[in-house]
């Protein structure tokens, strides 16, 4: 005898039209394979609608047998039919005969399907704090929002549970990115600065991808340049070489490589980005302000208050 154990054979049956092959109340589980004829699956409650019709070659009951998933329909023959029943004992004896990798493959197909079905009803969001910060960054700072309404809308958008969202609200509160107040028994939420929340989401993303958040890897010279650029009331338009000498004049440590770095972090942009021949650059005020704010509120963003 080989290492393979003996297979308990499946049962073959010929059934007349109207015969009930499986009823949800039954304790016996088996895979039903239709060899000849036709089977129909009906709802057990009125009006006993037909859910699906089986043709020769079709099978049901795999999930019920392998994963103990309930099979909730009544299965009956609509024509005289021939069926094969793979019972629990038969399947067990078959699984024992399989090479280990094939058994693992079956288990993996089952488990992955189960996971996908579960994931389809759960939230997709992995970092709920980032999601909440993003949601709130689209709210204005000059309104006091009813916290219950915010929770309801956020939960509608993301399917994140209210309990999880409440914890995340606390986390944002601890960072002073939002303010909470109470009036007439209701809690209201005020966004301190939507852009700060946006910066916070970028910071979380950098952490997720294990990259360093650009504002927190600036050199001393770059920080000095940042303060200098932010203080400039008007943004002059200059060519690259002119900017290099202008910056070098103010900060002797800054050279061409520094200019390339500043372009990479987008502190300067072309005055006409759509024109490939354009060689004039101006300060990207929005980006400079972004970096400045990220540095100014570093403790809030890092959560080390």
């Amino acid at each position: 005898m080989t290492s393979r154990q003996q297979l308990i054979p499946p049962t073959h049956q010929s059934v007349k039209a109207g015969f009930v092959v499986y009823s949800p109340g039954s304790e016996y589980r088996s895979i039903v394979i239709l060899e000849e004829g036709e089977l129909i699956a009906r709802e057990v409650t009125p009006p006993h609608s037909v859910v699906f019709t089986m043709r020769p070659g079709d099978l049901v009951g795999v999930a019920a047998l392998l994963e103990r998933e309930p099979f909730k329909y009544e299965l009956s023959a609509s024509k005289d039919s021939k069926i094969t029943l793979v019972t629990e004992e038969c399947m067990e004896s078959e699984l024992k005969r399989l090479p280990l990798w094939l058994l693992a493959l079956i288990r993996s197909l089952s488990a992955k399907t189960h996971l996908l079905k579960r994931a389809a009803i759960e939230t997709r969001v992995r970092n709920t704090l980032k999601s909440l910060a993003e949601y709130l960054s689209h709210k204005s700072s000059d309104t006091e929002f009813n916290l219950a309404e915010l929770l309801r809308e956020f939960s509608f958008l993301t399917k994140i549970s209210t309990t999880t969202a409440q914890e995340d609200f606390k986390s944002l509160l601890r960072r002073h990115l939002i303010k909470l107040s109470q009036k007439n028994g209701r809690v209201f939420c005020k966004i301190v600065d939507p852009e700060l929340l946006h910066i916070f989401t970028d910071y979380i993303r950098a952490q997720e991808t294990e990259t360093e958040f650009a504002p927190y890897r600036l050199s001393i010279v770059q920080k000095k340049i940042l303060v200098f650029l932010s203080a400039m009331e008007v943004s002059p338009e200059k060519t690259g070489p002119d900017w290099i000498s202008y910056i070098h004049e103010k900060f002797p440590d800054a050279d061409v490589s520094q200019w390339i770095s500043l372009l990479q972090i987008q502190w300067f942009v072309k005055t006409d980005p759509k024109n490939p021949d354009c060689d004039l650059f101006k300060i990207n005020k929005a980006k400079v302000q972004y970096f400045l704010k990220a540095l100014r509120y570093e403790t809030n963003i890092r959560g080390v208050l």
């Binding site: 997709r124 970092n127 980032k130 999601s131 910060a133 993003e134 949601y135 689209h138 958008l157």
Partner: peptide
Amino acid sequence: GVEKLFNL
């Protein structure tokens, strides 16, 4: 925005 909010 959608990626951060919904992770799509």
